[in-house]
C-alpha cells in the first residue's frame, strides 16, 4: 500500500484517525494550558505577596517543576494517581489496579508543568506594570476588583502575551509525552498505526507534519494576537 492510501481517508486509510488524534492533542493542550494559567496566576500572586510562606511555596513549586523532567511528573501523576485511587477504593473493599482517566492525568500534568512557566511570565509582566496607571485608576475612585479587571489584567496580558506564546509552544510539544499513559493523542495514534502496518517512518513522519502544522498555526495566531495587543504601544 502506498503512503498516500495509508494516510488517506479511504478504506484502510489512517487519515481520519490521525486528524481526530490531532484534535485530542489540541484539546489536551488547551485544557492543560488553562489549568496552567490558573496555577500560574496563583503562583505568581503568591510570589508577589508579602507572606513569606506563600512566597516560599511558590518558589519551591516553580523551581521543582522547571528542574525535573516532565516525563517524571507524568509518571508520578499516572502511577501515583492510580495508587491513591486504589487506596480510596480499598476503603470500600475493592482490590487490584485502578486506572485513572488518562486524559485527566494528561491535563493535570501539563497544567502543573506549564503553570510553573506561566507563573514566571505573569510575575514578570506584573512587575513591568506601570504603577502610575494603577494609581490613576485609584485616583478616579475605582475599587480593587475594577482596577484588576479594567487596568491591571489587560496591561499584564499584553506584556505576558509573547511569553505565554512560548509556554504554549512548549506545552504542545510536551503533550506528546502523555502518550506514555496510553491516551490516544497524536503520537499514540501514530504508534498504533506504525505497529499495525509496520510502516513506522510513514506514520511518525505524518505525526511530525501534523505537529508542525499545529505549531506553525499557533505561531501565526500568537503573532496576530500580539499585533492586536500592541495597538497603542509606542
Amino acid at each position: 500500500m502506498s503512503a498516500f492510501t495509508l494516510l488517506g481517508f479511504g478504506p484502510g486509510g489512517w487519515g481520519g484517525a490521525l486528524l481526530l488524534a490531532a484534535l485530542t492533542t489540541l484539546a489536551l493542550s488547551l485544557c492543560g494550558f488553562l489549568v496552567g494559567a490558573v496555577l500560574g496566576g496563583l503562583a505568581a500572586a503568591a510570589k508577589l505577596s508579602g507572606a513569606a510562606p506563600l512566597r516560599l511555596a511558590a518558589d519551591g513549586y516553580t523551581t521543582l517543576l522547571r528542574g525535573v523532567p516532565d516525563l517524571l511528573v507524568i509518571y508520578l501523576l499516572y502511577f501515583g494517581g492510580s495508587a491513591a485511587l486504589g487506596q480510596v477504593a480499598g476503603l470500600f473493599g475493592a482490590t487490584g489496579f485502578i486506572g485513572v482517566p488518562a486524559f485527566g492525568v494528561g491535563v493535570a500534568a501539563l497544567g502543573i508543568i506549564s503553570g510553573a512557566y506561566q507563573a514566571e511570565v505573569f510575575r514578570g509582566a506584573y512587575l513591568a506594570l506601570d504603577r502610575g496607571q494603577v494609581e490613576a485608576a485609584r485616583a478616579v475612585g475605582m475599587h480593587r476588583g475594577l482596577i484588576l479587571r479594567r487596568v491591571v489584567a489587560p496591561l499584564v496580558a499584553r506584556t505576558a502575551l509573547p511569553g505565554l506564546g512560548n509556554v504554549w509552544q512548549i506545552l504542545l510539544k510536551d503533550s506528546a509525552l502523555v502518550s506514555v499513559t496510553g491516551l490516544v493523542e497524536l503520537l499514540r495514534q501514530a504508534q498504533v498505526g506504525a505497529g499495525s502496518t509496520r510502516q513506522p517512518f510513514t506514520f511518525y513522519l505524518a505525526a511530525a507534519a501534523l505537529y508542525l502544522a499545529i505549531t506553525s498555526l499557533s505561531t501565526w495566531g500568537f503573532s496576530r494576537a500580539e499585533a492586536h495587543a500592541r495597538r497603542g504601544a509606542p
Binding site: 494609581e135 485616583a139 478616579v140 497603542g232
Partner: peptide, 18 residues
C-alpha cells in the same frame, strides 16, 4: 466616593496606555 469627587492630574500623565 471621595476619590471620584476629587480629580487628580499627575506629573507623568498616567493615561491608560491600552
Amino acid at each position: 466616593r471621595i476619590r471620584s469627587r476629587v480629580g487628580m492630574v499627575f506629573q507623568s500623565f498616567n493615561l491608560w496606555s491600552h
